[in-house]
Design a protein around this nucleic acid. Structure first.
Lengths: 339, 339
DNA sequence: TTGAAAGCGCTAACAG
DNA sequence: CTGTTAGCGCTTTCAA
């Protein structure tokens, strides 16, 4: 069995049976014109010889590769892996494959990923913006060419592109209220870059949460970081060194929450006695740390599924108004935030 | 720009320039026969019109899709995601894409994944066996058909298939010696299923480690689990309930180590004072738990890179003797194992 | 130096 | 009911 003959083709079947290629093709597709006899024979042989249609040939013919490109900021955090699982789940049902690329939180790599994926003729893209992304020409090009596109979590152009997000305002508000109910008064928030929708919305929820509880907003308690461990550690340190330090902190995501936790402990402060802590993380990580971290858990798998569903409805109905799915998060209360 | 004309083809370029398709093709490939003039003109227009060759057409012609199938037991742990990153890194250099499938630790899904990936005409497979996999017909078929195959971490058929593993014997021995040097006497080991090479080898390292330190092997301290959190919790509980309980435990992987940690803490025992703990995990998880977990860290990214390299040398030289790359692990000592 | 034609695997319009 | 033909985008003889 040498190279080049690993897969059998319609031709092989046709030769074997002494009929034409088109007859075989029709029989395999249950075309009504073909006699039941022939159909049966063809399908039997195809099964025996383990025939499977060549997707390259199909793709070339139909101009459809049944591939979706997926771009995520990174591949190694649970958040994205789990979303990818969700996407894959729906894609598989539809007989689609996904091609995964990571932007590594870099705009340059994101642009490159878009280009590369388009070169491979994926039918469209499902994307979470990189942290650096503030310009959108690379997506506008797709939009103008009517190439199916869906954003999730970190999104843009929502008037033109379907998207899946969680209710970040609500989530941040839940956290603030929770702190408040538990008697915390000086609630700090470590935010991300301003241009990211998730950061803006969580800030908004933080502010409205404070107001709802009748707490005054103090600008020194709202700090920004670039969501790296290093930067998060630095801003946490700054918070803890305030003349009157916060008695509660919430971090915008996993990385930030864990960095904060380490820094608080490193300084010999106790959680939650000295400083309470809440993050946005997943089930697994939250329970493995000590103290177990109260956190907002994202419905990651569902986010992926929903994004894929939006993608397919886009393929089927390209001209429909783009919709935005907003999923609810859950606040899971653990030790890190209750005295 | 309606559907079906998103990409421009050689034909488009040829028409625009009033030359034949073959001339365009040659010019683009810098064929020496073509006049420098024409070559220049063609390449200029191609660049302007943003031409990129259709990989489907190429694949059909060359019977090579430039795609590699990757099958991992799961997508959501750092270990595999990071290995995938490594594979992707090398694949990208070579202009290859990877198609990822997860077996979810199930043999049935693994077989299905092999089938599906082969149907998409990937050029070969890079695989880590599922936990359930004890039979290998689905891989033998590939081997017999000379389809490039590489295994990593959990491997089989190593006389026929190149593979990448870590030195598990050495790693387990390191752990045992480390415990011993720190004065621990009753060292327990939570192993995985017998048919997995990683489990066998680590058991071997555990045993030789004990011997080297002059410690006697006690059968009640060597327990097996199926590497699920549930099962790991159960066997940890059993260990802790022994009439004379172990003063040190090492767990075969992340899941087991964390489950053990939780169970130890749940019973009010202190780590490392009452029971020391060591695991096989990655940097991130090990430092985030409390106490920080001494652990063997895998060179995950490199494992992926190495696997991809083996894959390509397989493609280039299909008949070479398959080799096995053995990578070294590192024991990173943290609080969980030193008194 | 260039063009025409065949063929990779498949479907579909057109003829019988 | 079945075969012939053209064509998806590309490379590569073969001819000119």
């Amino acid at each position: 069995m040498e190279k080049g003959k690993r897969h059998i083709s319609l031709k092989d079947l046709a030769q074997e049976l002494g009929v034409s290629i088109s007859t075989v093709s029709r029989a395999l597709n249950n075309h009504p014109d073909i006699s039941p006899n022939v159909t049966r024979k063809v399908q039997k042989l195809a099964a025996e010889m383990n025939y499977s249609p060549n997707p390259l040939a199909m793709g070339l013919l139909k101009q459809a590769t049944r591939m979706i490109g997926v771009i995520v900021p990174d591949l190694v955090t649970h958040f994205y892996s789990s979303i990818i699982s969700g996407i894959e789940h729906i894609a598989e049902e539809k007989g689609y494959y996904i091609l995964i690329a990571s932007s590594n939180e870099s705009l340059k790599k994101e642009i490159k990923a878009v280009e590369n994926l388009m070169k491979t003729r994926v039918e469209g893209l499902i994307v979470c913006l990189s942290q650096e992304t503030k310009t959108y020409e690379h997506f506008d090009r797709l939009i103008n060419n009517h190439i199916p596109l869906v954003f999730f979590d970190r999104v843009c152009r929502i008037d033109k592109v379907p998207s899946v997000v969680v209710d970040n305002v609500d989530a941040a508000q839940k956290i603030t209220s929770h702190f408040c109910k538990n008697g915390f008064q000086r609630i700090a928030y470590i935010a991300g870059p301003d241009h990211l929708n998730i950061s803006q919305q969580r800030t908004q929820g933080y502010l409205s949460g404070l107001k709802k509880c009748g707490l005054e907003f103090r600008s020194e308690l709202l700090v920004k970081c670039n969501m790296s461990t290093l930067d998060a550690t630095k801003v946490t340190a700054a918070l803890l060194e305030l003349s009157i330090r916060p008695d509660a902190i919430f971090g915008i995501n996993d990385t930030v929450a864990f960095a904060a936790m380490k820094e608080i402990k490193r300084r010999g402060l106790r959680i939650p006695e000295d400083v309470a802590l809440v993050g946005f993380t997943d089930e697994f990580h939250s329970t493995v740390v000590d103290p177990a971290l109260t956190s907002i858990t994202h419905p990651t798998f569902e986010i992926g599924q929903e994004a894929a569903r939006l993608f397919f409805s886009r393929i089927e109905n390209p001209d429909a108004e783009p919709i935005q799915k907003v999923l609810k998060t859950k606040l899971v209360i653990r030790k890190s935030s209750v005295r």
